[in-house]
C-alpha cells in the first residue's frame, strides 16, 4: 500500500539520485501510467497551443504543459534515460531562441512601417483546411512557448543534475 501511495515520492528520489543508485527501484505503476499519460498530455499541449487564438490556451500554457509532461517523465524514469530518448537540445538555447523569435516577430512589424510588435492577421483559403485564419501573433506565441518550456526545463534539469553530484 505504501509502495503505491508514495510512488511519486520515490520517483522523485530516483529523479534526484539519477544513475547513482545501482539497484533500480521498479515502479511499474507510475511508469506505465506515465507512458500513456505523457502522450495524452503532450497531445493536449499541442491542442492548447493552437486553440489559444480563440479558445482557452496559448503559448504560455502550451509551453508549460509540455514542461510538465517532461517533468513527469523525469519523475517516472530517471533524468538520464529521458534525455537519451530526446534529441540533444540544450534547454537554455531553446529558451533564448524563443525570446529571439518573439523579438524578431516584433521587429517584422517595424520593417513594414508599423509600431514595434504590431501583429497582422488574414483569412486564407488553404487546401484541406478551407478558409483559415493565419496570424503573425502565432509566431510570437511560438517564441513564448519555447521560452517558457526552455526556462522551466533548464531550471529543473540543472537542479537535478546538481543534486546527483551533491549526493555523490
Amino acid at each position: 500500500m505504501q509502495n503505491q501511495s508514495f510512488g511519486i515520492l520515490r520517483g522523485l528520489r530516483r529523479f534526484t539520485e539519477g544513475s547513482v543508485i545501482k539497484i533500480k527501484i521498479n515502479d511499474v505503476l507510475l511508469q506505465t501510467v506515465t507512458k500513456v499519460a505523457s502522450f495524452v498530455i503532450l497531445t493536449f499541449s499541442v491542442y492548447l497551443f493552437l486553440a489559444g487564438h480563440h479558445n482557452p490556451g496559448g503559448g504560455f500554457i502550451g509551453g508549460l504543459v509540455v514542461a510538465a509532461a517532461i517533468t513527469l517523465l523525469f519523475l517516472a524514469y530517471d533524468v538520464k534515460t529521458v534525455r537519451a530518448g530526446f534529441p540533444p537540445v540544450d534547454f537554455k538555447v531553446l529558451a533564448v531562441s524563443g525570446v529571439l523569435l518573439a523579438v524578431i516577430t516584433g521587429m517584422g512589424a517595424v520593417v513594414f512601417g508599423k509600431p514595434f510588435l504590431s501583429h497582422a492577421f488574414g483569412y486564407f483559403n488553404l487546401p484541406l483546411f478551407g478558409e483559415t485564419e493565419l496570424a503573425t501573433s502565432v509566431i510570437f506565441d511560438v517564441g513564448v512557448a519555447l521560452a517558457v518550456l526552455g526556462t522551466a526545463l533548464s531550471i529543473i534539469y540543472t537542479i537535478s543534475e546538481d543534486m546527483c553530484i551533491w549526493k555523490r
Partner: peptide
C-alpha cells in the same frame, strides 16, 4: 482573436 486573454498576451 476570440480568446481575449490570448489577444492581450500576444
Amino acid at each position: 482573436a476570440k480568446n481575449i486573454v490570448n489577444a492581450i498576451l500576444v
